[in-house]
């Protein structure tokens, strides 16, 4: 045998194996996307870009939104929210159908199963970071300088990765058994989009809606703090440590539930493959 037998795959640590496979699957996702679509990179930013322009037109040009929470330039504000939302949204949508889409691979290779979700989180996360170039262009075009709070950006990435990984782990096995869930998720995501501080600042939330204390309900959303971290790069007033604490706790709880659900349901999932 050749020198290639030096390290048998099985002799590496589980962590190294996990990382190795995760990277391979992520690279596969990205290269499939970029070899089959001539406009690969453009596609990953086209959706948030287009939506930003639409919302800008509707709220700024038509409705004369005003600058109540100091979120100008609004187009930049929209981009800063819609780009991470795209990561969130596409990861969960993809996780919901991962077992039906990758059935052949799941049946033929024995890998740690959380990889099927983790690789979506990572490849979509990479696309998100790559899409930030567009944000930079808009910042330049509107001549908006970043603040030192931009240094917190990696914390936002980390929290969001934990959150979407946890949600993906919940959604992926359940959709195998309940096909309707895939549609339900799309609806829930749409509601969540408007309930999260993507289009507006959380400072604009009213404290009560009639007798309902709406503000605490909305603040319980772990995305709020994450959006705040991202936004603080240009709008320092958006950095709210209470929100961030809620995000951190919420994300970890979701991850815990996700790991539990995934672990318990995976034997049944494999039988359905």
């Amino acid at each position: 045998m050749t020198a290639s037998t030096a390290v048998r795959p099985t002799e590496r640590t589980p962590f190294a194996k996990y990382r190795h496979s995760l990277w391979l699957l992520t690279k596969r996702d990205l290269s499939v996307r970029y070899t089959t679509n001539a406009l690969g990179y453009v596609w990953s930013i086209l959706d948030p870009l287009l939506m930003s322009l639409i919302y800008f037109f509707v709220f700024e040009v038509i409705m004369h939104r005003g600058n109540k929470a100091g979120e100008d330039p609004y187009i930049l504000y929209l981009m800063a929210g819609l780009l991470p939302w795209t990561w969130f949204n596409s990861t969960i949508t993809d996780a919901a159908r991962v077992f039906s889409k990758e059935a052949k691979l799941v049946r033929s290779v024995s890998l740690p199963r959380t990889l099927w979700v983790a690789r979506i989180v990572l490849s979509k996360g990479i696309e998100y970071v790559a899409s930030l170039a567009v944000l930079a262009i808009f910042a330049l075009a509107t001549w908006t300088a970043p603040t030192p709070y931009a240094a917190w950006f990696p914390l936002g990435l980390l929290l969001q990765a934990i959150l979407v990984f946890g949600l993906g782990l919940i959604v992926a096995p359940l959709t195998v058994f309940y096909k309707d869930l895939e549609r339900a998720i799309r609806l829930i995501l749409r509601v969540l989009f408007y309930a999260s501080a993507v289009l507006y600042s959380p400072m604009l939330w009213p404290s009560h809606l009639g007798p309902i204390p709406i503000r605490p309900l909305l603040e319980a959303n772990p995305l709020t703090g994450i959006m705040g971290i991202y936004r603080a790069a240009f709008w320092p007033q958006e950095l709210d440590w209470t929100h961030i604490l809620i995000s951190a706790i919420g994300s970890l709880v979701v991850l815990g539930i996700g790991l539990l659900v995934f672990r318990r349901s995976v034997p049944a999932v494999l039988k359905e493959m």
């Binding site: 190795h20 496979s21 391979l24 290269s31 499939v32 691979l105 049946r107 033929s108 290779v109």
Partner: peptide, 24 residues
């Protein structure tokens, strides 16, 4: 299901690296 790990849109070369890699 030996062809399970192969991806239609990738080249044979990429597929060899992918499948062998996934198997460790």
């Amino acid at each position: 299901e030996i062809t399970g790990g192969f991806v239609d849109d990738l080249t044979v070369r990429d597929n060899v690296y992918l499948t062998a890699g996934l198997h460790g």
